[in-house]
Design a protein around this nucleic acid. Structure first.
Length: 492
RNA sequence: GACUGGGUAGCUCAGCUGGUAGAGCAGCGGCCUUUUAAGCCGUUGGUCGAGGGUUCGAGUCCCUCCCCGGUCACCA
């Protein structure tokens, strides 16, 4: 750090160079510069490019200096020959450290070994880096450092950049897909007086002027439905939800969720949208329909399997869901406590241990038609009150989408809300309240509708092949580090 | 939250049953006009995560705590 500070001073005093650069016009990406190379052209006929990039390798062999520079499109070699540049530029090239960002202009040619190279006629310092860079070959490996100093990780480990760019492509691809279907993107409150739409612990905050507690939303659902009541036919929102729960490779306290609601649709329509958008993203953003994830080859090109809860249960256990005695026996085999539990509760516990899992839920599968008692906020199947019109999409064992034919009967909704509230413990009761305004909206009348939520971060994990949610979020939450009462000084 | 693995130089890592803290890269000083992790010669650099304990002596053994990864739980 001190050595670099000294070099920064030398740039100013000896070379009269501003180590923090200035506006540069006419820059092209390193990939574009590389593409300009024409092997048949030599000397002055070679195309000239102006490029900028962070120096990741610096080979000074005396009167000739090779640098490998990197930008978001890749790496390119820049050569600075003492003969080809003025004295000041050559001295500047000598003073370049790994991590500096430079601007180089010159013909795009090759070296003896055939590597495409910008043969600099001019070199400038765009910004002097004061922090020592990570090891140049092994790079930045320590996962803690990588997440804490993502700005270093991003250039040291180029796949990080790739994933973040693919993330952007996936999200804009989702928008395009839904807009093409006539959907309107909306934004609903993230600061909510009553957190609703999911079963999760919220973050609490406080508004000073109004002197009220507010909650960071755990889901946008109840507001999106209000928009349906108001007359919007097809709405979606892609934005952050916040849940005050544990952190894991599949859970970040803030995460990006897509929710969509379509009037006069049902969960079958949502199933088609889920399958359609995911397949399209694989094709358009990743460029293939078979993608490796945690050792699995996931095929997004084939139609996704669609099976009911009841079928899958029987397939895995060899007896139907209605066979109570067999269920109790199975529960005993699994060391589950069955005494005093309702049939459907026990059913779900056995389901979680026998049906879910990679062998059955590895390839994309829609699990449809859950027992109604497990989904109190879902509309039952017409003519069969025991079955809820709900599906969950599983891929690689992860829950990716959850969809319903939405309940729009305010009386049933209110009864279900009240039943839910009655079953809460004291801690949960602190923030769960009856959202009377939402019930009022249902009384105004919400058209029948299908609705769905898709965990965007998890979808990005699948499509990019990243095993941890932290790898698809630019700045995942990390506990702040302090040492001796002082904040850690960044160095890498 | 539980279990488990880890934290040693800026980075990547070694350090055995306790005996003066090491390497490579980076850095610094030299040489070098076609290198490819350039090379060669010389060289600087440490609160061994923090605190306590055992011991003549602790990176190493014991205790407490902090941070990170993984698995599980909660959840999406």
């Amino acid at each position: 750090m001190a050595d670099r500070q000294a070099k920064l001073a030398r740039l100013r005093t000896e070379l009269g160079v501003d180590p923090y650069g200035q506006r540069v016009d006419g820059l092209i990406s390193l990939a574009a510069a590389k593409a300009l190379f024409k092997p048949e052209l030599e000397g002055d006929a070679r195309p000239v490019a102006a490029v900028a990039g962070r120096v990741v390798l610096h080979r000074d062999i005396g009167k000739l200096i090779f640098m490998t520079v990197r930008d978001s499109t890749g790496d390119l070699q820049v050569a600075v020959s003492k003969k080809a540049v003025d004295e000041k530029a050559f001295e500047l090239a000598k003073l370049v450290d790994l991590g500096d960002v430079i601007v180089a202009r010159g013909p795009v040619g090759v070296t003896k070994t055939g590597e495409v190279t910008v043969w600099a006629s001019g070199v400038e310092m765009a910004v002097k880096s004061l922090a020592p860079p990570p090891e140049k070959w092994k790079g930045l490996q320590d996962p803690e450092l990588r997440y804490r100093r993502r700005y270093v990780d991003m250039y040291v480990n180029p796949e990080v950049m790739t994933v973040l760019q693919q993330r952007s492509g996936i999200i804009s691809g989702v928008r395009r897909y839904l807009e093409n279907r006539g959907y309107t993107e909306v934004e609903t409150p993230m600061l909510q007086p009553i957190p609703g739409g999911a079963a999760a612990r919220p973050f609490v905050t406080h508004h000073n002027a109004l002197d009220i507690d507010l909650y960071l939303r755990i889901a946008p659902e109840l507001y999106l439905k209000r928009l349906l009541v108001g007359g919007m036919p097809k709405v979606f929102e892609i934005n952050r939800n916040f849940r005050n729960e544990g952190i894991s490779p599949r859970h970040n306290p803030e995460f990006t969720m897509l929710e969509l609601y379509e009037a006069f649709a049902d969960y079958q329509v949502m199933m088609d949208i889920a399958e359609g958008v995911i397949r399209k993203l694989a094709q358009d953003v990743i460029g293939k329909t078979t993608i490796a994830f945690r050792g699995l080859e996931i095929d997004y090109g084939k139609p996704f399997r669609r099976a009911t809860y009841f079928e899958l249960f029987e397939e895995a256990n060899g007896f139907p869901v209605s066979a109570h005695d067999r269920l109790v026996q199975k529960a005993r085999e699994l060391h589950l406590e069955s005494a005093g539990k309702a049939h459907d509760v026990l059913l779900q516990e056995v389901w979680e241990r026998t049906v879910e899992g990679e062998e059955r839920f590895g390839q994309p599968i829609f699990v449809m038609d859950y027992p109604a008692s497990l989904c109190p906020l879902t509309r039952p199947k017409p003519g069969n009150a025991a079955v809820a019109e709900r599906f969950e999409l599983y891929i690689a064992g992860m829950e990716i989408a959850n969809a319903y034919t939405e309940l729009n009967d305010p009386a049933v909704q209110e009864a279900n809300f009240r039943q839910q509230l009655a079953g809460l413990d004291d801690e949960q009761a602190n923030f769960r309240n009856l959202d009377e305004d939402f019930l009022n909206a249902l009384k105004v009348g919400m058209p029948p509708a299908g609705g769905m939520g898709i965990g965007i971060d998890r979808l990005i994990m699948l499509l990019t092949g990243m095993a941890s949610i932290r790898d698809v979020i630019a700045f995942p939450l990390m506990k702040p580090v302090t040492s001796g009462g002082e904040a850690e000084t960044p160095s890498a």
